[in-house]
Design a protein around this nucleic acid. Structure first.
Lengths: 330, 330
DNA sequence: CGACAAAGTGAAAAAATTTCAATGTCAACG
DNA sequence: CGTTGACATTGAAATTTTTTCACTTTGTCG
């Protein structure tokens, strides 16, 4: 038989063994219907591939929506991304929905909320996205792009600065300037930004027969960097140069140094990563690795807009090179 | 005559003198219909008050959406607001859409785009709201709340820190510390934040028989503040204290001072406004007026959620008091 | 226990969407 | 200069969906 016509509500009704009315109600947000029943109907509809006309237009309207899942909006690097992203999307008539994930929030709950709004794509800058989220998005035909994150265990699209290379560049710079007692202030251990930057940095040092003189974790934020800086600078034999895994922590370190009368760069060389606006401020003049934010945003949108890439495809990773910005902290 | 039932597509069809099919098509985003005709039908539908069922469900779905129109995400004050707002909304199952407005545009340009997504409310932290936008929102039953902005010419809801009082507090502080040559670095002339802070500040000075020793505008951003700072500090008889209209400019001023060997606070007292995170950093330790961001966000959402307040009502202004935070820059 | 409200239901009525054949328009072509 | 065909647009009719309405069930309160 197979009169392969579009699926209708009647078919769903039959499949779910309910009345036609019930099917219609299942798709109306405020209609009186038992939640269980609605769930059953929605499941049946999904199986058959039925979408109510109302839902269909709603989806077309929501088509231009891209959701950004951001972890740490207080790190000035992310507002830069956010600002750029919002502008680019507006130019193409789309809009940006922002989810600020609190530090130790329930990611799964957020996942449901995010999916409920049916964005056409999700951009994730937050570290704590579970593979559940990735799977759920795939199922719902929603593209996911990680921005400034790479995750090896999940096959997912990602755009990031080449953190490994950046780490190498910093290491090389410090070696060239003659430093041998070199310290490192890391971010959060299980993030790709931390791991890759640390790896590149350590490898270059190792190649020159130098090992990290001292290190500490600073969780990517000012207070953490401040504490880590205090730890390293109170050592009996403190490092003469410190690479901080991001700019905010580098600024905190400079503040610690300032407080202790340690001169930067004479007594201590400091290098950061990101090139946030404050890095160029006079109080700091921080040498750092600039992330090509504009390009990164562009690439991320490119991955989303490329119709050859399907949400269910294996992930593509676009690696962009950062550039060392020499200022006065080295 | 007055069988006052809900308006149907048939009535619209009759009013617009088109077929029933056409009305349906006018409401389907991708349906084949002459744009002119669609416009005519949509106008007729609006007049009658007809909403297609598809559109209706779409609206219910979008119900939990609040749009933030932000101008300057690169001023660290706004990410704080954004972060808080996104969290609060998530807690109540709603979501935040962000529009980043280019620096000098008014809201008008984005009005259509903003209204197209039919948010249940709009929060504006940026720029000028035109009466056109206010009218449009009123018409569409969308609540508008200005945050950190007050506009006297339009009757609209607003939540803001008491900038006038904050300006007074700063002025009084500087007078108490014995300063008489007091400078001022302003933001953007026609903004309420600039105007009110300046007014309170000047009034207190005037009451003590002191007039502003020198002043300059810095457009609320770091580079502007930097230039303004240079201007004031290169005077033959520079001020001994300067009030900057926001923190970012105050930090820029401190950087200028640092560069010129002008000691803060010994040679120059600096006060800002906002209390952004960097103000408490060691490099600056800026004395400033803290805006009660958490309260402001809460009040803004309160205005939105209060069902007694209708979108068409006259505006309510909630003024919250800021608090002087004494650090080491005075 | 009985009255009553609230929630949920299917059949049928009402309304909206989609199909389909027809019409008009316009540019390319013979 | 007429013909052809592709294409967009249309209204009537067919189909599909939504809503109404009368009824049932369930649980609560007096």
């Amino acid at each position: 038989m197979s009169t392969t016509n579009k699926p209708t509500a009647k078919q769903v009704a039959h499949a779910a063994e309910v009345s036609l009315s019930a099917v219609s109600r299942a798709f109306s947000p405020n209609a009186p219907i038992h939640p269980e029943k609605r769930k059953r109907i929605l499941a049946a509809a999904e199986a058959i591939g039925y979408i109510s006309p109302a839902r269909r237009t709603a989806e077309v309207i929501a088509e231009g929506t891209i959701t950004l899942v951001a972890g740490d909006l207080l790190n000035p690097f992310y507002p830069t991304v956010l600002d750029l992203l919002a502008r680019r999307l507006q130019e193409s008539g789309r809009q940006l929905v922002v989810y600020a994930l609190p530090a130790n929030s329930d990611v799964d709950a957020a996942t449901d909320q995010i999916l409920a709004s049916r964005p056409s794509a999700v951009i994730v800058t937050s570290a704590q996205l579970t593979s559940k989220m990735a799977r759920a998005c795939r199922q719902h035909q929603i593209k996911v792009v990680l921005l400034n994150r790479v995750q090896r265990d999940i096959r997912i699209n990602a755009v990031a600065c080449d953190n490994y290379q950046g780490g190498r560049d910093v290491g090389r710079l410090l070696l060239e300037r003659g430093h041998r007692k070199i310290g490192f202030i890391g971010g959060v251990a299980n993030t790709s930004t931390h791991a890759e930057r640390a790896r590149g940095f350590r490898e270059v040092l190792a190649e020159a027969g130098v090992s990290t003189h001292a290190q500490s974790l600073g969780d990517f934020e000012y207070p953490g960097g401040y504490v880590a800086g205090q730890t390293l600078l109170s050592m009996k034999d403190p490092p003469s140069a410190i690479f901080c895994c991001n700019d905010i922590m580098a600024l905190a370190l400079i503040d610690v140094a300032r407080e202790r009368g340690v001169r930067v760069p004479e007594d201590l060389a400091v290098v950061g990563f990101d090139d946030i606006p404050m890095a160029s401020w006079n109080a700091y003049r921080l040498t750092t690795v600039r992330q090509p934010v504009e390009l990164m945003v562009q690439e991320a949108l490119g991955l989303i807009d490329d119709t050859n890439i399907k949400p269910t495809d294996d992930g593509i990773t676009r690696m962009l090179t950062g550039s060392l910005v020499l200022r006065n902290s080295v």
